[in-house]
């Protein structure tokens, strides 16, 4: 049995005539220790899918099994890194992480917990900023805090919802490496939601495109057969990389085209021209 299983998931928002089916017939299974990326257009229901898996939302129908048990609520076993960092602005970096750690390990002493906070802040190399508030940090630093907060709770699985979407290319690349480093250390299961195909190929073992919503569903999966650790600069010359990348982009372009042509109504414009005031 797979580590995480989604069987025939449907998610419908609203009721009656106003109902929109955001996700339909989602089937996914992730093995333990695997790094899976889901790629999709913005607005295709990626965040809804993530919230179903982390337990913030419940599917309208279908079942989600985590280690064979249905997911009914959020759990410390699944750490979440949110798209918009979601740090509490009134707490410092250390306090933000401490709050999470205290919940995850209620029986540990304060000293042990504080040491844990320090370790994880050091891991994302933010030790000098431990007493700073989120507003004093750059976007990349905030996201590193969010990563540290999720990992400090020692989750078995990390769920990342477009974690690097709002960052510039350089910071993005650095953080990708940092996340991969942490992941490869103890091979936790990871699920990455992204809109960047290159990011997916660089980081994941498998890429699954999400067809755009409404009625979003998962497309065919693409295996990434590139050895780890992957080298970003060498990646461009890797024939395997090129092949996979082209295949995924072609697929996404095709479904993008298909979506456009669905609503192709021709509008006839009335024949009018500006009145001439000269004559």
């Amino acid at each position: 049995m797979a580590y995480l299983e989604l069987n025939n998931i449907y998610k419908i928002y609203g009721e009656g005539d106003g109902a929109t089916e955001v996700l339909s017939d989602i089937n996914l299974s992730i093995e333990e220790g695997e790094f899976v990326a889901i790629v999709g257009f913005t607005g295709s229901g990626k965040t809804t899918l993530v919230n179903l898996i982390n337990g913030l939302l419940k599917p309208t129908s279908g079942e989600i099994l985590f280690k064979g048990e249905p997911i009914i609520d959020t759990s410390h076993e699944r750490g979440v890194i949110f798209q918009n960092y979601s740090l509490l602005p009134w707490l410092t970096v250390g306090q933000n992480i401490y709050m999470a750690v205290k919940e995850a390990f209620p029986n540990e002493s304060k000293r042990v917990l504080q040491q844990r906070v320090k370790d994880y802040v050091a891991m994302v190399s933010l030790s000098p900023a431990i007493n700073k508030r989120p507003k004093e940090l750059s976007g990349g630093m905030r996201q590193r805090v969010a990563v540290a907060r999720a990992l400090a709770m020692n989750p078995e699985m990390i769920i990342m919802d477009e974690p690097l979407g709002a960052l510039d290319a350089l910071t993005r690349g650095n953080l990708q490496d940092e996340i991969l480093n942490i992941w490869s250390k103890d091979k936790r299961t990871a699920l990455l939601i992204t809109n960047d195909v290159d990011e997916g190929i660089y980081m994941a073992d498998r890429i699954i495109p999400l067809k755009p919503g409404p009625n979003a569903t998962l497309g065919p999966e693409f295996k990434i057969d590139i050895e780890r650790p992957r080298d970003k600069t060498a990646l461009n010359d890797n024939p395997n990389y090129k092949k996979t990348r082209n295949a995924i982009i072609e697929y996404l372009m095709d479904i993008g085209e298909a979506r456009k042509s669905v609503s192709q109504t021709e509008y006839i414009l009335p024949e009018i021209s500006p009145k001439s005031f000269v004559a």
Partner: peptide, 25 residues
């Protein structure tokens, strides 16, 4: 809603949720 989601994901108790998240915000 982001703060509420954080409270849920961290599984804060009601007391903690009120005094550490809802009141400060």
């Amino acid at each position: 809603k982001d703060y509420i989601n954080v409270a849920k994901v961290l599984k804060l108790g009601t007391f903690q949720k009120v005094f550490k998240v809802i009141l400060p915000s």
